[in-house]
Amino acid sequence: MIVFVRFNSSHGFPVEVDSDTSIFQLKEVVAKRQGVPADQLRVIFAGKELRNDWTVQNCDLDQQSIVHIVQRPWRKGQEMNATGGDDPRNAAGGCEREPQSLTRVDLSSSVLPGDSVGLAVILHTDSRKDSPPAGSPAGRSIYNSFYVYCKGPCQRVQPGKLRVQCSTCRQATLTLTQGPSCWDDVLIPNRMSGECQSPHCPGTSAEFFFKCGAHPTSDKETSVALHLIATNSRNITCITCTDVRSPVLVFQCNSRHVICLDCFHLYCVTRLNDRQFVHDPQLGYSLPCVAGCPNSLIKELHHFRILGEEQYNRYQQYGAEECVLQMGGVLCPRPGCGAGLLPEPDQRKVTCEGGNGLGCGFAFCRECKEAYHEGECSAVFEASGTTTQAYRVDERAAEQARWEAASKETIKKTTKPCPRCHVPVEKNGGCMHMKCPQPQCRLEWCWNCGCEWNRVCMGDHWFDV
């Protein structure tokens, strides 16, 4: 396979590697080409510095992935760790964990309700045991953590790749202090920090972006993250068709209702045909949960890209028209025109101005929308079919299609509260000796007794199943 190397943020060049090629071997190839010592090179990928003893497969490097290699003399205490030698983080029983690669970060837990604080980093599902597709590297999971809308060759929703760059020099040479644990960490600028490894760059702020994971991409090709779309790892039924499908869209209502993408497309087109989208002054033209839940309008309007190009163009047109109407304007009634106009409040005669090729020149009556006339309008008909009709959803289907309910059931079956801080902690095999993952707590306690870890627990039921 081919990976592209950008040395000291210059133009990239291809390097041929195998899945079992080590990072140090990659350094040696680059060092020979650039005429520099291999031990002064640092390989940066997806916000993480890659260790010498890791392989291309370990690092989730795919065909035509772009890695950054910078030349920086080692500072005291760094060289041993980078070589894969006596790194205290690798000691058996050590409590410190390697910062998780962005290629394996899962933010789907952050669609849980606000009262489930902490689960994004504490609760991990076991539903990723799908067998890898044919042709994928051994052991590589097909679980997708992110979804994007690819405006490039795909023109559809695709699995996405999370990447990070330095907000100062805009190069992907920043190593994160810690990985993101929720969508806010990724979507809110300057929320996460790190250290830029580019020479002479003092940058410390992280800037995240997404790429389409279905095809090789260049540095400049980015895609918009659709953070309401998630892999259906909890096997929730769709609120409309009641099938279990994946991926799904999880509405931001209190129940976190789930809808499959085909039904979401149908829901949007139906509402669009009836012009029953909601115009929100802050958000724009949007839709609420299909069950009509309060405070559930979709905030990231790129989710409506699921409509496809033709329907999305209609959505944008109707949204612009609705904006004009909300501002007190009118639409030209001549067939084939429909231009938005903003006449004076007491102006009865409205002319669709033909300047700049935008208007048709038609003069019409503001009251009856017919060709302009003197005197009273002959008839004014009330528009028919403008009443909002509820999208029919079966109550039982709505009850079963809740992301929140599956989460709470998982928590109930696989977790116990920490005796000190009461945060839910998952036990997935292993011994009875637990350690609270909350940095402010870190209590060592017994899963069996529910009390602080002691010699009695150690001698009596340390390794009970």
Rank of each mutant, 00 (worst) to 15 (best):
442 R>Y: 07
413 K>L: 12
56 V>A: 04
161 K>A: 09
40 Q>N: 09
41 L>I: 03
140 R>N: 11
288 P>S: 10
288 P>Q: 07
173 T>F: 06
457 C>W: 01
148 V>Q: 02
343 P>H: 06
125 T>H: 12
408 K>D: 12
245 R>N: 06
418 C>P: 00
406 A>N: 14
124 H>D: 15
372 Y>Q: 06
117 V>N: 15
322 E>P: 03
409 E>N: 11
292 G>I: 02
42 R>A: 14
134 A>N: 09
46 A>M: 14
87 D>L: 12
164 V>S: 07
203 G>Q: 03
383 A>I: 13
463 F>D: 01
342 L>I: 10
89 R>P: 13
346 D>M: 09
131 S>W: 10
365 C>I: 02
100 Q>S: 13
358 L>Q: 14
88 P>F: 05
442 R>N: 09
259 I>G: 01
38 A>Y: 03
430 G>C: 07
403 W>G: 03
352 C>K: 02
152 G>K: 12
420 R>W: 08
45 F>Q: 07
109 S>W: 03
44 I>L: 07
147 Y>K: 02
72 R>M: 15
437 P>V: 04
343 P>A: 09
196 C>H: 01
16 E>I: 05
403 W>K: 03
46 A>D: 10
226 L>P: 01
331 L>K: 04
88 P>H: 06
191 R>Q: 08
388 T>V: 14
295 N>L: 05
457 C>I: 01
279 H>I: 05
194 G>Y: 02
97 R>P: 12
171 Q>N: 14
304 F>W: 02
319 G>E: 12
8 N>D: 07
197 Q>P: 07
48 K>N: 04
367 E>D: 12
74 W>N: 13
25 Q>V: 04
84 G>D: 12
137 P>A: 12
208 F>M: 04
61 L>M: 11
414 T>C: 09
26 L>A: 00
283 L>A: 09
161 K>P: 00
183 W>D: 00
165 Q>H: 09
311 Q>T: 06
383 A>E: 12
39 D>T: 06
435 K>S: 07
93 G>W: 11
6 R>W: 03
238 C>Q: 01
110 S>R: 09
192 M>L: 13
259 I>T: 04
461 H>R: 01
387 T>K: 14
21 T>L: 05
211 K>I: 13
401 A>H: 04
380 V>E: 07
415 T>E: 11
125 T>K: 13
71 Q>M: 07
265 H>K: 04
341 L>F: 08
305 R>N: 08
70 V>C: 04
363 A>I: 15
358 L>M: 15
300 E>V: 05
59 C>S: 07
148 V>I: 08
339 A>M: 15
104 R>P: 13
285 Y>G: 01
332 C>K: 03
390 A>M: 11
406 A>W: 09
341 L>M: 12
285 Y>N: 03
249 L>R: 01
429 G>Y: 14
43 V>W: 00
165 Q>G: 08
202 P>K: 14
61 L>V: 06
364 F>P: 02
103 T>N: 13
117 V>Q: 15
286 S>V: 02
79 E>D: 13
120 A>N: 14
145 S>H: 07
186 V>Q: 01
328 G>N: 08
411 I>N: 14
59 C>P: 01
390 A>D: 14
224 V>T: 12
